[in-house]
Simulated scan of single mutants.
Amino acid sequence: MMQRRLLRDMVRIRCVEEELGVIYRDEQEMRTPVHFSIGQEATAVGVCAAMLSTDVIYSGHRCHAQYLAKGGDLTAMVAELYGKQTGCAAGRGGSVHLIDKTAGFGASSAILGEMISVAVGAAWSFALRGEPRVAATFFGDGASEEGVFHESLNFAALHRLPVVFVCENNQYSLSSPIAARQPIGTSISGRARGYGMPAHRVDGNDVFAVFEASKEAVRQCREGNGPCFLELDTYRLREHVGPNWDYDVSSRSKAEVESWVERCPIRRAVGALSISDPDVTAALADWEREFRAELHEAVAVAKSSPFPAVEELLAGTYES
């Protein structure tokens, strides 16, 4: 059942990131910044479930959830966090530079908004070749204030490209709330409509609503109707970068964070399914054990894997 699959995928991402957060904090062996998606799993799962294996996605610095939701290799991701040669980017990229082309995860980058234009380029190639493929790009509300956001939307609309723009509006850019950065009475999806494309604002903590909106957006793109835009309202529960809670050191209050904990996408999905699927609570416990064990197995593999050889550190770089 699709609804169970959506919940299961969210639980997997949550378990992986929670366990990684503890290991990252306590062991201090992963020497890479980590941006967790704890609390906003529904955006990645809902969108990726609506796409085919031949479609591609691109993400920014908060990319673990999209990588896993698209089918990226967990063991390779964990090895990348440890900087090991067996990592998905051969230990060169760390948490913010993941890639798994076989799964349709094109790339991620720490440069704000960079992958928006890359996804547009991929969609342009699909259109030029007549391929029935779709590209999607994930970015936060802060990236909507970058010039590349507007340039990319304009170009995609002009050439009617098969790209879905996915704004994960988690209300903050680092510690700056959206109300302090964008004029009252405006919206990110409203700006997208200004470029002549369909744009929808969706409850990003309702995985079923995200999935339905994404299916329609992907369908329109695949049928040659040009780009679509999804603004998904959600919230990251942990700090901007790192595994900790941040309400004691940032502009976010504990009460605000706790109000979003009550709107947790996993909790909401379980509540919605429990009436028609009463066994879902028991399944949830089984999944948690399975996925936490899976993560620890990946950590063991990463720790036993070699670091890149010194003589190969420049492999893949440009030489003048």
Rank of each mutant, 00 (worst) to 15 (best):
K101H: 06
E312A: 05
F105D: 13
S259F: 00
E312Q: 15
E17G: 01
S320M: 09
I38K: 00
P306D: 15
P162V: 15
E290P: 02
N169R: 01
C15P: 12
R252V: 02
I13V: 08
R222W: 13
A298Q: 00
A285R: 12
N244A: 14
V249P: 00
C167F: 07
H64A: 10
Q28P: 03
F149Y: 12
L295V: 15
F211C: 04
R14M: 08
F155M: 02
R62P: 11
Q28Y: 05
F149L: 03
G224A: 05
G224Y: 08
G316H: 06
D203Q: 03
K101F: 11
C228A: 13
G147T: 03
A107D: 11
Q85W: 11
T54Y: 02
F138A: 06
C228T: 15
R191P: 08
P198N: 04
H240T: 04
I38E: 08
I23N: 00
A213V: 08
L158E: 05
M51W: 14
L7D: 12
M2S: 05
G242F: 06
E212Q: 13
V56T: 11
N154K: 02
P308Y: 11
A127R: 15
V22H: 06
L232M: 07
I13T: 12
M10A: 08
R92I: 09
I23E: 06
G72M: 07
V22D: 04
L284W: 12
F291A: 09
D100T: 11
E223N: 00
W287Y: 14
N154G: 00
E319W: 09
L158R: 01
M30H: 01
R292Y: 01
D9L: 08
C228M: 08
V164F: 01
F138G: 10
R8Y: 07
G83Y: 05
H240G: 10
D100K: 09
A110L: 15
E80H: 02
I116C: 06
E18Y: 00
H61M: 08
R191Q: 14
D248S: 08
Q85R: 12
R62E: 12
A300R: 04
R263L: 10
A255P: 02
G242T: 06
R201Y: 03
E80I: 01
S53G: 05
E80K: 02
G113Y: 09
A50S: 14
G72H: 13
L237Y: 06
M51L: 15
G142A: 10
R92Y: 07
E319K: 05
S37L: 01
P132W: 09
A107I: 10
E294I: 09
F138D: 00
V280W: 04
S250I: 03
G60F: 13
V56K: 14
V134T: 04
P183V: 14
S253I: 10
G142N: 10
T186M: 13
V148D: 03
L74Y: 01
M2K: 02
A269E: 08
E290V: 03
E151P: 09
L295Y: 02
M115T: 15
A283G: 14
F165I: 11
A103V: 10
W124D: 02
R62H: 13
L232C: 07
I178W: 02
Y58H: 06
E311I: 08
R289L: 07
E212I: 01
Y172D: 03
G21A: 00
S175H: 13
S304K: 09
A44P: 05
D277E: 15
G224E: 11
